[in-house]
Write a protein that binds this DNA or RNA. Structure first.
Lengths: 193, 193
DNA sequence: AAAAGCAAGTTCCAAATGGAACTGTATGCA
DNA sequence: TGCATACAGTTCCATTTGGAACTTGCTTTT
């Protein structure tokens, strides 16, 4: 996730924590494990990335679940189609990381709930099927998006406009170069001969 | 995850994708859903963060699982204790996002595998218990850490040293300010009166 | 110093997850 | 045109997950 440059990070938890209160209340004494993971971690970048993902996702998805009864994969499908209408389950899987069977179930349920257009029933699956949000689905998206956007804004309040711009560009660079670094593992893979 | 500043992102998948091949092979045509999530997303920062977490975590945890038979929560416990020896299950939960029952199981198994020191058996749980890696556990950590660190380095190859420094500082700022922005939801919470 | 409160850890069990096998469609090749 | 391959989507089922209730032990109150 990060780079090793003096600090360090542990990484990766579940991408949402359903337990946690995350009320900022005190957190006063105690978490000096957090200090260690922030400032004494061989993987400082990745820890930060995973930790930010956790802090951001958890309350939002809990809220979505409690308010709309949608599980994470379901909302992700909704969100994905809102941004890329006509996308397929495979596209969503590639860009979200959920396995295709999980998405198959999510799509089935969304269809049942009338949040996405009914597909011309293809029993066995067949070939790539373009998915579309229903009006109801789009309405739900429009209703919930502000919360996601607002939380992102709140997350960034510590940064100036210039800093946000910079952060955006740096993260973009890394993502764009993903073809060159992602998927190289297992580590033992050695040189590409 | 991000901020909204012109671009956008959908967010949050499972934090590792066990399916996915992620071989960078082609990905040539097709994923223009990825394009949409990157460049036309109301939450461009959070998408990038979640996507990077996905790309980074997936191959590493798959490798850990295949090579050492450790599941994600188990390895996270190991990693956490390596950085903060004597930490408790609660500390790990707070910093990783895994619920405490999942960690309880993970710890039990690690203990059984001899990777962490046996705790003076406290049936019901009792009060905070400090956990410690065994020599074997530390050896496993030392053996696996390089892969995590190396992958983080590979991830950052697109950035110059100065850019890495900048990225590090920006992410640190956001994390440090977490008390001010995290956990504010549900969104409806309104002003704090 | 008993009682109440609280927090860490464990157990239980219903639900969700995801690997593997399968179904069915499209595409490439002979 | 027929066959083989590739691949999107589905189904199956064993494993994992995580909310809720419970146990235990520290800490505060009176």
């Amino acid at each position: 996730m990060l780079l090793k440059q003096g600090i360090s990070a542990d990484m990766s938890g579940p991408q949402t924590a359903c337990d946690q209160d995350f009320g900022k209340p005190d957190n006063g004494p105690g978490p000096d494990m957090l200090e260690a993971k922030l400032w004494d971690n061989p993987c400082p970048f990745t820890f930060r990335i995973n930790y930010l993902a956790l802090l951001y996702n958890t309350p939002l998805y809990n809220w979505i679940h409690d308010t709309y009864g949608l599980k994470r994969p379901e909302y992700v499908v909704l969100y994905s189609l809102a941004l890329a209408d006509g996308g397929s389950a495979r596209d969503i899987s590639r860009t979200s990381g959920f396995p295709k069977n999980t998405l198959s179930r999510a799509i089935k349920r969304l269809e049942l709930m009338g949040l996405i257009e009914a597909r011309s029933k293809t029993p066995g699956g067949g070939r790539k099927q373009a998915l579309h949000l229903s009006d109801k689905g789009r309405a739900l998206f429009n209703e919930t998006l502000p919360a996601f956007a607002a939380q992102e804004q709140r997350m960034l309040t510590a940064l100036s406009q210039g800093e946000r711009q910079m952060l955006f560009e740096l993260m973009s660079k890394v993502v764009i170069a993903a073809n060159d670094w992602a998927g190289g593992l297992p580590p033992e893979a050695g040189p590409t001969n």
